[in-house]
Write a protein that binds this DNA or RNA. Structure first.
Length: 718
RNA sequence: GGCGUGGUAGCUCAGCUGGUUAGAGCGCAGGAUUCAUAAUCCUGAGGUCGGGAGUUCAAGUCUCCCUCACGCUACCA
């Protein structure tokens, strides 16, 4: 096992085009926070960084739609993120942003370094440029004649007829699929990172955890789904990845590089360097060095992310870091899976989510309740489920009934019997152990059992098993409850000769509360503060508290001294009634319903209108009514249906990309609109003689355009 | 379609390199108890381990086929 001097913990940078929802929290933030807080309490040198990802095309699109400047969008969400994280108790040491000057400089410097080292493959290519749309065209937005088989409608990246993969510039008679115009060739330079060149070391690193024979991590410590995904990518063969794009919102490619004009760094390079610039920001503000955290191999780098980000953090970013040469590689990337909500996928675009900032408004001062339930159902190994009923149950049955109640009984009894002074204990006093071995209990033995539980907890956290770790916190509380229940101090206290026994038991019960104050800290920081107050102790600073507690217990010393005066009792958690839960459930329904109504209003604004065409051009199209007679799935294609249609005078076969929207059964018998005079085209080996007209909404959902009432087949539409 | 991960009690999930009667928490049923937010504690019921075939003395755990969910990717608009 490697020994580390310091820990650098990162959480995925949230993208600044929508608010945070519970899935974000469960995926990459709570797990990182638990890990960071715990490690701090183990006296580790921890740096926990995060920030907003504020560059990229989606933000400009969003800005255009809202008719504001992109900066306005990112400012809004950056502020919201920062605020939400802070309120939820996320303990970032720094929360930065990629629109900052510092980030731009950092990313450019990094790019420049790779450039100078000659790591990039610089490709000045002639790429098609659509003058009407004023943009470069990605290969798949260009169509033309295939140079290999002369097929007329080949795409710029691949010809579907002969299957050969192409470059758009290979096409004969190219045209833009955006405007239909003939695109012009324009020179553009992009810089590619040759991932294929790194394949052998990446393979060694992923499979064995070694680079040049030096062990950097143990692959068996990585999660299955993370390793699986990485291996799948490497086995599939790696290709050079463009590190730049023709974009207009982001970090400029350094101007000293020829051909950099109008180019921006692509997200692969931009976003992860956000971790580095955040570290620099922290160093600046705290008068510290940033470099040891990134360049010293005594640093353990851990990325907390969601499963959609695995390849990015396990292949591409490491490749970038290694190409630079000075940087360390991540020791682990404990990616979480996804959290569903009431049986459905969470969706920002469909407005189906529990938004964290709204939760904070609806349930003020209940951050830990949400944290508890999210950790309890964290998608560590597979997708998990958030239900409001589950949230209520966890709160009422576990937090209130078990944890808060145990603490309350101890505080109340200690105040009642000893005026709030923690009583002395008698080492030799025998009582009922909370353990299951049936042997009598002694004070030191019970402390040792507590030590064991805490040890178990720390093992789970180190292995990124946060759900299990959280269970141990509850186990401490349960053990405390057992201790009271088995010994019934409220009965013993009635007889004076039991005085020492009651004192010993109550002292021990207080030790359990004191242990909870520290043990719950990584998960429930607000509760930890409340426990400090109840116990009359200062709030935990997260310096070395867990370690000290463990050391004390191992030596047989109690966590809190007898004679200490504790505080007055109050409730840690309170019940959630059905009303609050039902309110949230109906809110969810309304949200998704409103969204259902919305597209009509939105779509027209969002979709750009096309330029005017001559009436003659329109009449060139022969659009007719037709009824679908049969439908079957096209093999080896998820989205295609092969349809047979009745056009009145003839039957036609059409291949249509609607399989994800309609089943073969529901499609048969439908009357639809169809363009009949498109040149026939072979798709997946089937000749398609026409095209079905579909209406598409904001989210890409499709529906047929059908006559308002049953009509003659083959009727002309105009 | 390809690749990857997962499908274990009503619910949420553990089960490492195959080995005695498959585990936990919550829920449920019965009992004990009253210091405590009618909380707690004890006991119990509940599973043909997605389906099928195979390897083995022995499979939730290995192999193959099928199926469902999710992710990446391809194909389509």
């Amino acid at each position: 096992m490697r020994e580390f001097d310091r820990l650098l913990i990162t959480s995925a940078l949230p993208y600044a085009n929508g608010p945070l929802h519970i899935g974000h929290l469960a995926g990459a933030y709570l797990s990182a926070d638990i890990y960071a807080r715990f490690m701090r309490m183990m006296e580790k040198d921890v740096l926990f960084v995060c920030g907003s990802d504020e560059n990229g095309a989606a933000i400009t699109i969003r800005a255009k739609k809202d008719r504001v400047e992109p900066q306005k969008i990112v400012d809004t969400y950056h502020t919201l993120f920062k605020d939400t994280f802070e309120q939820m108790g996320l303990s970032f040491d720094v929360y930065h942003r990629t629109s900052s000057a510092l980030h731009h400089e950092t990313a450019q410097e990094f790019f420049m370094d790779l450039f100078k080292k000659g790591e990039f493959i610089e490709q000045e290519s002639e790429q098609f440029f659509d003058a009407t749309a004023n943009q470069f065209l990605a290969d798949r937005y260009v169509m033309g004649q295939c140079p290999n088989c002369d097929y007329e409608e080949a795409y710029g990246d691949q010809c579907e007829n002969c299957g050969s993969s192409l470059n758009a510039t290979d096409l004969i008679h190219p045209k833009s699929t955006i405007s239909g115009n003939i695109p012009q060739l324009k020179k553009t330079t992009h810089w590619y990172l040759p991932l294929d060149k790194y394949e052998s070391w990446l393979k060694e690193w992923i499979n064995n955890g070694t680079v040049d024979g030096t062990e950097l991590h143990r692959p068996e410590d990585w999660k299955n789904h993370v390793l699986g995904q990485c291996k799948s990518w490497i086995e599939g063969g790696l290709n050079p990845r463009s590190m730049t794009r023709d974009l207009n919102w982001g970090v400029d490619v350094p101007s000293e590089i020829n051909g950099s004009e109008g180019k921006k760094l692509y997200v692969w390079l931009d976003a992860p360097i956000g971790y580095i610039s955040a570290t620099k920001k922290w160093a600046e503000e705290n008068e510290k060095e940033w470099e040891p955290y990134w360049k010293d191999d005594k640093t353990k780098l851990v990325h907390f992310i969601g499963k959609d980000n695995i390849v990015f953090h396990c292949i591409i970013f490491p490749a970038i870091l290694k190409a630079h040469g000075d940087y360390i590689l991540p020791e682990n990337v404990p990616a979480n899976q996804f959290m569903n909500l009431e049986g459905r996928k969470i969706s920002t675009s469909k407005n189906y989510a529990v938004w964290v900032h709204e939760y904070l408004k609806d349930f003020p001062d209940r951050q830990d309740e949400l944290r508890y339930y999210m950790i309890k159902s964290m998608p560590e190994q597979k997708d998990s489920e958030f239900t409001w009923k589950g949230f209520q149950d966890a709160n009422n049955n576990e937090l209130v009934n078990n944890l808060a109640n145990f603490v309350n009984r101890v505080i109340v009894l200690t105040n009642k019997y000893y005026d709030g002074i923690i009583p002395e204990f008698d080492m030799d006093m025998e009582f009922e152990s909370a353990g299951e071995d049936g042997l009598p209990g002694f004070h030191d033995g019970e402390l040792l059992a507590l030590f064991d539980l805490l040890h178990e907890l720390s093992d789970h956290i180190r292995a990124y098993n946060f759900r299990e770790a959280l269970k141990v916190v509850m186990a401490i509380s349960s053990r405390g409850n057992q201790l009271l229940q088995f010994n019934e101090p409220w009965k013993l206290v009635k007889d004076e000769e039991n005085e020492d026994k009651v004192k010993t038991i109550m002292n021990l019960a207080c030790q359990h509360v004191a242990a909870l104050r520290i043990a719950c800290r990584p998960f429930l920081p607000f509760t930890s503060d409340k426990l400090s107050e109840l116990l009359g102790l200062p709030a935990i600073e997260e310096k070395d508290e867990f370690l000290l507690m463990q050391d004390n217990l191992a030596e047989g010393f109690p966590i809190m001294e007898a004679g200490h005066k504790i505080g007055k009792a109050f409730h840690l958690f309170s019940r959630l009634d059905d009303k609050a839960i039902e309110g949230q459930l109906s809110k969810l329904k309304e949200m998704s319903f409103e969204d259902f109504k919305k597209p009509t209003a939105n779509t027209s604004a969002k979709k750009e209108t096309k330029s005017a065409v001559a009436f003659n051009d329109f009449t060139k199209l022969d659009i007719r009514t037709a009824t679908i007679l049969t439908a079957e799935k096209v093999k080896k294609a998820d989205k295609l249906l092969k349809l047979e249609l009745d056009l009145g005078t003839e039957k036609r076969t059409v291949v249509s990309g609607i399989a994800e929207h309609y089943s073969t059964d529901e499609v048969v018998g439908k009357q639809v609109s169809m363009i009949t005079n498109l040149e026939p085209r072979k798709i997946r080996g089937v000749l398609s003689q026409g095209m079905i007209l579909m209406a598409e909404d904001n989210e890409g959902k499709l529906c047929f355009v059908s006559p308002e009432k049953p009509w003659t087949n083959g009727a002309s539409i105009r």
